[in-house]
Each structure stands twice: as C-alpha cells, then as structure tokens.
Design a protein around this nucleic acid. Structure first.
Length: 358
DNA sequence: TAGCCGTGGAA
DNA sequence: TTTCCAAGGCT
C-alpha cells in the first residue's frame, strides 16, 4: 500500500497547484462570506457550513450577520435569540458552542479572533477543519482545511484507497495538503480544493472533462474516478413512534415544553411529546401529561402524521389535540399565547405541527 | 473508535 | 423510494 509520505514523491505538485489556483480564480462563486476577509464573518460561515449545503446557509448567514454583526453583539445576545436565528439549520450545538466561543474571544482576546491556530482551535466547536479554514482564509496562514470535498478530490487525484471516514486518513490527507500548498496562497489553495470538489469533482457524475487537473489525476488516468473515495457504509436509522399533542386552554393559550439541555434537539421547544407504541399512544400521552404537566385532557387524534428524519434515527410523529379546562401549573412547561410561543426556537418537525394545527 | 447530533437537496 | 451526503465536532 502506498503511504501518505510516498504519494507525493512522483506527483507534479507545481503543475497541480498552478492549474487548480488558476481555475479557482476564474470559477469561484460569489458568496456572502467571500465579500471580505473579516475573520468573524468567515468563522460564522464555516460553522454554518458544517454538514450543510451552501444554498441552505446563505439566507441564515445574512440574517445572522444582520442580527449579530460583531463578536461583541453575539457575545451579548440572549441565547434564546441566537437559537431562534438558528432555527431550522440543525445541529443546534453549533449555535451554542459558537456563542460560547465568541464570549471567550471577547473576554480573553479583546474581541479579536485569535491569529494563532492553537488558540483558535481551543475554542468550542472549532475542530481540525474549522481551524484550518478560518486561519487560512482569514489570515492566510499555511494550515490545511480538509473537509469532505478535499478528501474526495485528493482521494481521486492521489489514488487513496483508505476509508475517508477514518480520522487517520484525514490526518494523512492534511499532511498531503501541507506539502501541496507550500509556497501558494493558503487561502486560495484551500478554497480552490473545496470549490473543485463542490462544482466539478462531485460525489456522483463528476465532470472530468471540465476538470483543470485531470492530467495529474491518478484515478482519471486509471478510469477509477467512480470507485473513489472509499467510505464505509453507515447503518440504517432506527424508527421510533412518537405522540405529540397541541393543547389549548380556555384562554387560548397553548402548552409548550423545553427539551433537556443535552442530547437530541437540546434546549429546543416543542409541543408535549412522548415515545409510545402505536396502539398505546393515547395512554402514554395521558400518563405523560399528568406526570410532567399536571394536566388531564381528552385527546383526539388528528390526521397529521409525518417522519422527522435525523442522521441516526427516525421519529414517526402522530399529532393529537386536546383542550384543557383547568389551567394547571406546569413545572416542565409553559402556557403561552401564540405570539409568545412564536418567539421560541422550534425544530423543523414542530414548525410543521405549528403550521398545520394553529 | 464509533455513535450521537438536523435538515434538505440530488439522483 | 431510497440512499447518499453536504465547507464536521463532540464524547
């Protein structure tokens, strides 16, 4: 097997760098976070772009930067407002970690994003990729930024057959990138690799005819592009049946509850919900409402039913309705007017319930 | 290490 | 419909 240190021995590094940089200069997309080199804007964009497509991020980024234009503004904001701005983007710990990290930057670094990769990487939510991306793009430091695009591009160009899901493979590719980027602009080189992966060297049906580095691509030379990168299959998601309920009291208020501050959809608001086998949903829901919210309601099942798909499990959510005749105290939840409830951050599945039932 | 952590787009 | 996976990080 070819080791990472051997891969580059006979590789035309200069030609590769020259070609991909030239291509990037002529083909890069105009993106909101490319308008300047503000380290804060680039940082926010990189967090949003984690496992999230560019087109999805754009409107969130614009809105987020309008509301929290500086590190100080984000540091001082209410967490609930930050979560509301993140509503629908997913991976909500990103938002909490980002605000926590920005607070640290304001307190310990005077609001200046650290120019030291080690210091920046110590912040919450900043891993190997984000460290390299922000340090190289904002400060032009010679740091690799290896994401899924870069793994795929280099797996093909350098004919790497290792599982790209393994951490060891990513570290080896980082070493490769350090060699390849030497003497170039790290900001442009990293973005060029990612842009090529996003626009040309795509997972399916890559456009090799249009590729600026096909001459140097070992997979292309061997007609192996379709077989790379190698990635272990992930196991199927587990299905769970959930019962959610919209309860309204005589004042027109509705009952909402906040999820625990750790785990799935941490801290997000939802209509009261429990896991229950399909034939025991009403029983489970009644028990739960009595115990958690001290409410005793007559339940009606609605027609609404849908899947909420996560990366590792699927909720099959059945929606019920109920009317509360007595307004009981609810330690784990809140009775809110519809206007008040709209200020809270809900997950996408509960936004669907909201739209359908209210 | 591998499982947990959201959502949507594309084929 | 199903599957993959997207500018990943945490534990």
């Amino acid at each position: 097997m070819t080791s990472y240190s051997d891969r580059l021995k006979t590789f035309p590094i200069g030609e590769f760098s020259r070609r991909i940089l030239n291509w990037y200069e002529n083909n890069k997309r105009p993106l909101p976070w490319r308008e300047d080199k503000d380290p804060y804007r680039i940082w926010v964009s990189e967090i949003m772009l984690q496992q999230t497509q560019v087109d999805t991020v754009k409107p969130y980024f614009e809105n987020f930067m309008n509301k929290f234009p500086t590190p100080e503004a984000l540091a001082e904001a209410e967490e609930a407002q930050v979560m509301k701005a993140w509503e629908g983007l997913g991976y909500y710990s990103r938002a909490r970690n980002l605000q926590s990290a920005v607070k640290e930057v304001v307190q310990d670094y005077g609001g200046e994003i650290p120019k030291s990769p080690e210091n920046f990487a110590s912040l919450k939510g900043v891993g190997p990729y984000t460290k390299g991306a922000v340090m190289s793009i904002a400060y032009d430091l010679e740091e690799p930024a290896v994401d899924g695009n870069v793994m795929r591009v280099l797996a093909r160009v350098l004919l790497i057959g290792d599982d790209i899901g393994k951490q060891r493979t990513r570290r080896q590719v980082e070493d490769d990138v350090r060699m390849l980027m030497a003497g170039t602009s790290p900001a442009d080189f990293n973005q060029a690799l990612m842009e090529l992966g996003a626009l040309v060297c795509t997972p399916k049906n890559p456009d090799c005819d249009a590729c600026p580095v096909k001459n140097t691509c070992r997979a292309y030379q061997r007609s192996m592009v379709h077989a790379l990168p190698v990635k272990a299959k992930k196991k199927k998601q587990q299905r769970r049946t959930m019962a959610a309920v919209v309860i309204e009291n005589e004042k027109g208020e509705i009952l909402v509850e906040q999820r625990p501050d750790k785990g799935l959809l941490a801290g997000m608001w939802q209509f009261p919900m429990v896991e229950a086998t399909p034939d025991l949903q009403q029983v489970a829901l009644n028990d739960y409402l009595k115990e958690a919210h001290q409410v005793d309601v007559e339940l009606t099942e609605t027609e609404q039913r849908f899947d909420h798909v996560f990366s590792h499990l699927i909720w099959d959510i059945h929606v019920f309705r109920g009317t509360a005749h007595v307004q009981a105290a609810s330690p784990n939840g809140k009775w809110l007017t519809k206007t008040e409830a709209k200020q809270l951050a809900f997950s996408v599945s509960h936004q669907k319930i909201w739209e359908e039932q209210l």
